[in-house]
Design a protein around this nucleic acid. Structure first.
Lengths: 155, 155
DNA sequence: TATTGTTATACTCTATAACTATA
DNA sequence: TATAGTTATAGAGTATAACAATA
């Protein structure tokens, strides 16, 4: 091989910076303020999870998609329900289970939030060439896939 | 423009997945076990910060680079010092300040840890073309830069 | 008086264990 | 007896406030 690939030691600082930017920029908090959602961050994640699913989910399904423990979800559903953003109904097929669905208010809030956050990403890559944008999306997706399966192999 | 760029709504799920993979895969914990470092995660971050700086740092500098509050660093320095991984010496130029430096053990541990983690990334992109690897490194770095400045503008 | 660092305290997020109700 | 969910409790990580020492 005449050409060497990427030095992975270069990748790590970028990934660490990405984490810092996403976690510490108050991106999420600011979008929530602008949108007027009066819930905390994991509560918002529950809302987004439901919105992305596009259908009512069971508590266990929400926990699975968020990759957190069940009680974590239960606790936040109280707040969301009190705020009128979600509704809990008993699953007609299984009396043990309960389906959680977005109210109209909840769906609207989640939509406005996503719009605000996506606006940031759009602005960040606004002056990129269309080619670079598509390539980045493709390689990022591939990287996450490969990293995930690479890490799964260890277990 | 005849070609449309990336739909940012596509980017968000990838970024969320990346966060999940990095945070929940126990990548960090496993590397620490293999390397035999008996400290916790933020303590390790202190170690890596010192290692990447390549020189002794003040407590405030460490906190700044980690983007956390000062007391957080102080607390973990106790553990690191007790484990013989760092050493605190008074700054000869300013008696108020204290310089934190890696011991030989600390430098070796940080080095072994970085090697283990970087090995994962190397393996993840191992079957990529050299071209894709370099392009990904370039675009990822650019994306973080642009996102960071985009978010900084708001303040 | 301003700055460096420490001590003490509290809050957020997540996990585990024990319990209740239905299948 | 197994499964879905809830309640109760505990732990990790980080932030803020109050303080001590030096500049």
């Amino acid at each position: 091989m005449s050409e060497s690939g990427l030095d992975p030691a270069e990748l790590l600082p970028h990934l660490m910076r990405l984490g810092t930017v996403l976690n510490r920029s108050r991106l999420v908090e600011r979008a929530m303020e602008n949108v007027g959602i009066a819930i905390d961050r994991p509560g918002l994640t529950v809302l987004i999870t439901l919105r992305m699913a596009g259908r009512p989910l069971r508590v266990g399904e929400i926990a699975g998609r968020m990759e957190v423990a069940g009680p974590h979800v239960t606790r936040h559903l109280h707040d969301l329900e009190r705020a009128g953003l979600v509704r809990r109904v008993t699953d007609p097929d299984d009396q043990r289970a309960r389906l959680v669905e977005l109210t109209d208010d909840g769906a609207a809030a989640a939509g406005r939030y996503l719009e605000a956050v996506l606006g940031r990403f759009t602005a960040a890559v606004a002056d990129w060439s269309g080619d670079d944008q598509r390539t980045f999306g493709r390689l990022l997706s591939r990287f996450v896939d490969d990293l995930q399966s690479q890490l799964a192999d260890i277990d």
